[in-house]
């Protein structure tokens, strides 16, 4: 081993990090080389000086500060987790609300609940709903709906079907009610006098408290003379015709208010058949009960029975 090799290994030799063979070789070289030995001694003293430096003690309270910092960090993490959990809860609630609003059935079926008196309004409302929805759909298709739009597109036809189904149901219900009403009024099909729900009476059919209106069919040779006969008969019985001739001729019937107790006389005057009279009497027994219930309940004051509104349809005899 030469001096250069020995000098390059001096640091490791001092630390005892050399393999045994090299350690021995350096040791032998230092024993015979004074310059390298001087170098080794200087280096060894340098290392000794550095190693002689006193160790700095950790400052007071460092351990406590570290513990406090760790506890604070743990608390921050806990609060962060709690905060995120809270945010997550709110988001979930919001998402649920959105889903509920988005996919809840339309309110139309609930509108079908009000009493039957409001049938026309109900039907109008449904009609407008059913009319509007397809427009909305078409508008959605035209305006290139996003995800929400696509969902709405899927859902709305179902809603429409519901609306469409509920409207006829209500109509059927009303028709059923009318049938029951009519069944109360008429037990058979009269040839000239028919108790049936006219378009105007549909509303009153839905209102059980409203007085029923009779329809009479007067067979005459021509409409004008028939109308004159009816007016004369009604006036003779202290009744009152409620429409002008022109209007009556246009619609081929006339409305008249006839005192309840004069109905028989009117039928007789207009030469209605016995069967019709019987029919009328039967209806009379039922109709006044509802019509007169209010005055009866009113108490001591005895008011005259309200006049019966009669619709007299003019039917011109064929071939005469």
């Amino acid at each position: 081993m030469n001096c250069e090799q020995a000098k390059s290994l001096l640091s490791e030799y001092i630390d005892g990090e050399l393999p045994a063979a090299e350690d021995t070789a350096v040791k032998k070289h230092l024993a015979r080389c004074e310059a390298c030995r001087a170098e080794f001694e200087a280096l060894e003293r340098t290392v000794a000086l550095v190693r002689s430096l006193p160790r700095a003690e950790a400052p007071e309270g460092l351990e406590r500060d570290i513990k406090v910092a760790l506890d604070r960090r743990a608390a921050r993490r806990r609060s962060a987790i709690f905060r995120w959990a809270k945010v997550g809860t709110w988001l979930a609630a919001a998402a649920t609300l959105v889903v509920v609003i988005k996919y809840s059935p339309p309110e139309a079926p609930r509108e079908a609940q009000p009493p039957l008196g409001g049938r026309e309004t109900l039907l109008r409302a449904k009609g407008s709903d059913a009319a509007k929805k397809p427009e909305t759909l078409r508008a959605g298709e035209d305006s290139k709906l996003g995800v929400a739009g696509a969902v709405a597109e899927k859902e709305r036809p179902r809603a429409l079907r519901k609306v469409g189904a509920s409207a006829p149901r209500t109509e059927k219900h009303a028709a059923g009610l009318m049938r029951r009403n009519a069944a109360k009024a008429a037990s058979g099909e009269p040839p000239s006098l028919k108790a049936r729900g006219a378009p105007e009476t549909e509303k009153s059919a839905a209102e059980p408290a409203a007085p029923a209106r009779l329809e009479l069919i007067y067979e005459c040779d021509d409409a004008k003379s028939g109308l004159a006969d009816v007016r004369q008969a009604v006036n003779a019985l202290h009744g009152k015709t409620l429409e002008t001739n022109k209007r009556a001729l246009l619609q081929n019937h006339i409305l008249a208010a006839v005192p309840r107790d004069k109905l028989d006389q009117l039928i007789a005057t207009l030469k209605l058949s016995k069967k019709v009279q019987k029919e009328l009497q039967e209806r009379e027994r039922q109709v006044p009960q509802t019509a007169q219930s209010a005055p009866d309940n009113a108490g001591a004051q005895k008011a005259p029975p309200p006049p019966v509104q009669v619709k007299i349809i003019l039917r011109v005899r064929a071939g005469e």
């Binding site: 160790r55 700095a56 003690e57 950790a58 400052p59 460092l62 351990e63 570290i66 513990k67």
Partner: peptide, 15 residues
């Protein structure tokens, strides 16, 4: 437990 480790190593690390 970490506090115990800190008390054993803090001097060396600080130095």
């Amino acid at each position: 437990a970490f506090g115990t480790l800190v008390s054993h190593h803090q001097g060396a690390v600080f130095n």
